[in-house]
Amino acid sequence: MPTLENSFLKLENIKVIDSTIPYSEYTPIELSVTNTDLFKNDIKNPDIFEDYIEDLLQKNNAKIAYGGYNEVRNLYNQTHLFNDEQSDERNIHIGMDLWIKAGTPVLAALDGTVYGFDFNAGKGNYGPTIILKHTIENQCFYTLYGHLSVKSIEHIEIGTVFKKGQTLATLGDSSVNGGYSPHLHFQIIKNIEDNFSDYPGVCSKKNLVYYLENCPDPNLLLKI
């Protein structure tokens, strides 16, 4: 039986953000602890961070900044959601972020059905979130779309079918998306366990091996 990762390699032309934007207008962004540029900007302020993103896009003649899988970040030490006295610090990002303005269309990566959705409220959280369930070569898996607009989940229903490339949602702004500059958090999940409308998008070093196996690199699908 093929692995899920091998099944992804056979697929082509998958986008999860505005299909009119070619990959030639994507540019990588690094938000790791080694990026010294971040020390010069208050990235915890979504307006300042949005200006940082816009400057990066202009310098690279791009419309979308992407990256972040298996990236150690300082971005999460702003909230107790990722750091508390009872658990290890969670600061390793296990999805892909695609940074672009609020209101941008978000697309279903593949044919699937709505498995769960919710407004995951609170600073640092996903805000409005949708999870789709997919089957490929008899393998079941899930894709998570976080930091959406509120209207994205107002009329959606469990079991609704979305086709590959169909508009699923739009991006939210910092007032609803957990306090971040607008972006999509896109994540692949093999075993969702008892989660329904949420799943960790950041993990600790202690649990990294498990999460990297359970949440493959989204770029296996997107091929940016």
Rank of each mutant, 00 (worst) to 15 (best):
I100W: 02
D42Q: 03
L56K: 07
I43Q: 00
L57P: 06
D51Q: 14
P105C: 00
W99D: 02
G112K: 05
V114G: 08
K101Y: 06
E71Y: 07
E50W: 10
N91T: 09
L57D: 02
A108G: 04
I53F: 00
N45Q: 05
N125H: 12
P128F: 00
D118W: 02
G124C: 01
N77R: 15
I156Y: 03
G116F: 04
S152P: 02
N91R: 14
T160V: 06
P46A: 10
Y115G: 00
T135I: 15
K44N: 05
N74H: 11
P128R: 04
H80K: 12
K101G: 09
Q166Y: 02
E137N: 12
K101W: 06
D42N: 13
D51T: 06
G95T: 04
K163D: 01
N45P: 06
F162Y: 12
T143D: 04
F119P: 05
E54K: 11
D97C: 15
D118L: 06
G127C: 07
F82V: 04
D88Y: 13
I53W: 00
V114I: 15
D47T: 13
I156V: 12
F141E: 13
G146M: 09
D88G: 11
R90N: 08
L56V: 09
D97H: 11
D118R: 03
L144R: 15
